[in-house]
Each structure stands twice: as structure tokens, then as C-alpha cells.
């Protein structure tokens, strides 16, 4: 059943990204471009997504364990380190340059042509380099 739920979740995620317009790079860049022709759509997408997701987090307390086995993820420590800040800064820069983040890059892979594949290849390269950067940042101040 775990695979069924993975596929169901992926299907909803992919279709939701498409319906919401978040596979359109101009809408993502439009949200970030406050000095240009600002597009508020992303805020509605984020707001819409947070509603069912916050209900789900509340339900985890009642359920105790996930339906298909395993454990719910532990809460994260309320502490911000260099990796989080520097990593998120780099991500934000890349996200703004083309208007693609990881989810939509997969959801629109069928229609983004070579450019979409080049993006995913470069993202994969960045992910292979990430453990080195993270180790370096985490080693400095704990």
C-alpha cells in the first residue's frame, strides 16, 4: 500500500502544481518580482496548501502512527544554522533566475523540452556537491 499512497500523493502534487499555474515560470518570477508586474498567485497556492497540511499535522497526534506503517517524523529543533540560511539563499537565487523549483521541474518535465532536462541535470549536479558544502558549514560553528 505504501506505493499506492506514494503514487496518489505524487499524482495530486503534479496535478496541483499544474492546475495552480506553478509550472509557469512567469507566475513564479512574477511573485518574486515586486518591482515589476507583481503576481500574487503563489500566495494563494501556498495558503491553499497549508490548510489541508496543517489539518494533517493535527491528525498525526490522534493517529499515533502512520496508516501504512512506520513512524511520524520527529519535530525539528527550533534552531537555525548556517546551512539553513546559506542553502536557502542559494536556492532562492536559483529559483528566481528561471522560475523553477524542484517540484515543478518534475511536474513540467514532459513539456519543458531540453531546457527542463538541463535544469534537472544541473540540479542533480548541485545535489551531489551539497554534502561537501553542508559538512564545511556545519563544521564551523555548531
Amino acid at each position: 500500500m505504501r506505493y499506492f499512497y506514494s503514487i496518489l500523493s505524487g499524482a495530486l502534487f503534479g496535478i496541483g502544481l499544474t492546475v495552480s499555474g506553478m509550472i509557469d515560470t512567469t507566475k513564479v518570477q512574477g511573485w518574486l518580482d515586486v518591482f515589476g508586474d507583481w503576481d500574487p498567485t503563489l500566495a494563494f497556492v501556498m495558503g491553499g496548501a497549508i490548510i489541508p497540511m496543517s489539518i494533517a499535522w493535527m491528525l498525526t497526534k490522534k493517529l499515533g502512527k502512520p496508516l501504512a506503517g512506520g513512524e511520524f517524523p520527529e519535530p525539528t529543533e527550533p534552531f537555525v544554522d548556517r546551512s539553513l540560511i546559506i542553502g536557502s539563499t542559494m536556492f532562492g537565487m536559483g529559483w528566481a533566475l528561471v522560475g523553477l523549483c524542484p517540484g515543478p521541474s518534475f511536474a513540467s518535465i514532459a513539456i519543458n523540452g531540453i531546457g527542463g532536462l538541463v535544469f534537472i541535470a544541473a540540479m542533480t549536479g548541485g545535489m551531489l556537491l551539497a554534502p561537501r558544502l553542508k559538512n564545511y558549514l556545519d563544521a564551523g560553528t555548531a
Binding site: 542559494m90 529559483w95 528561471v98 523553477l100 535544469f119 540540479m123 549536479g125 551531489l128
Partner: peptide, 11 residues
Amino acid sequence: AGLLVGLGTRT
């Protein structure tokens, strides 16, 4: 952009 997104999100 892809390099920054991959490196940044995993870091």
C-alpha cells in the same frame, strides 16, 4: 539556476 537550486535545497 539548476546548480544553485540543487546545492541550496540539499544544504
